[in-house]
Write a protein that binds this DNA or RNA. Sequence first.
DNA 1: ACCTGAACACCGTTCAAGT
DNA 2: ACCTGAACACCGTTCAAGT
Lengths: 220, 220
Amino acid sequence: MIGTIPRATGHNAGMPPRPAPPRRAALAAATIVDTALRIARAEGIAAVSMRRLAEELDTSPMSLYRHVDDREDLLLQMLDVVADNVGSPPRSGTPRERLRSIMIALHAAFRRDPWVVQVLAVDGLASPRILPVVDAMFAALADAGLSVAQASSAYALLLQFSFGEVLMSHHDAEDSYARRLVRAADPAQFPHLARIVTADRRDYFDDNLDRVLDGLLSGR
Amino acid sequence: MIGTIPRATGHNAGMPPRPAPPRRAALAAATIVDTALRIARAEGIAAVSMRRLAEELDTSPMSLYRHVDDREDLLLQMLDVVADNVGSPPRSGTPRERLRSIMIALHAAFRRDPWVVQVLAVDGLASPRILPVVDAMFAALADAGLSVAQASSAYALLLQFSFGEVLMSHHDAEDSYARRLVRAADPAQFPHLARIVTADRRDYFDDNLDRVLDGLLSGR
DNA sequence: ACCTGAACACCGTTCAAGT
DNA sequence: ACCTGAACACCGTTCAAGT
């Protein structure tokens, strides 16, 4: 599997081979997390169970507990990886430009790992590695002239927006129950709804991000 | 248990007692749903299991399956009740006023039953009884002068916003992991974050709703 | 005809027995 | 000292045996 022996990146080059490695490469925390991420992306976070993970790694479920405190700890380590994927916030540009590119990076990370939103929503977990991004958002909001109270409010809105977007588009993408419901709605009873349904769907995120930034930054 | 014999509200008063009721009152679908709602409100949706529900109703888990197809069907019936709690959308007022009061009603219902957002988010379910509210939102957006494409986009944003709000405030309310994380952040490393954390928290929903409506309705 | 106990295939986690 | 099989307390759901 990919990343079975991480961090063995050359400082050992030229040294004699390590004595008598165990028959199977030792389970590394990074391997567990990588495998969990792969399962989560392919089948959703519900498929990431300790037993399933152990099976995938050819071990017993209890072996995992030597590298991971419990399932919550595993989820947190998965969130660390996703937080790193968001990347560093930009240092130049107008406050609005900075906010915009942070939000787009956040959104891209959420889109790549939609299960993240479920983990944050259901389990209330978060990675400390996202803090630089959060700090940069507050910095941009302050630079835009917002008071502390206004910035708190604006930050909440921006996060809620990207959260909600991923949450809903995740199920809208496939032929979800909710989508079938709207399509099956009686046009006579819900005329406005019917007009909308016939319109083809696009990705609303970029447009709506500009609308939100309009509401937050202009005119106060 | 509470609600074992619902709707026995007096139209039988003065009548002779019913002949030979079965030893235990028959299980009604409404009783099951009511009990499930009570558990969900008190302990979250994860506590609503078929086995727990049966225990609460003094029956076997399999008896529930005579009134409910499966757990998904139960969740849908619970969503029906919440959708009814949202109430009828207003028929008068400016488009903005109508949108505003619909959103506030929706938000109030979500606040009363935060588990709804998890069910919609994780299971992708929805109740057809919410369709009148959705239709009214689209009607207001059309009356405000938005094109079909603009209204679709705006509708998505409004729903995403209220979704995200409930999702995040649900965990922010209690002393969640995410909240402890922000509070534990190093002020030297994250100066902007530190300023915010010391500010006391309010409910941002009403303010942010106006910001979102500003962005959506003004200036196009 | 109706109800339901036992069973099946899962889950996270503990704990003591095994090497 | 280290690893892990069996066990515990859950879960949704099926199915056949019971009345």
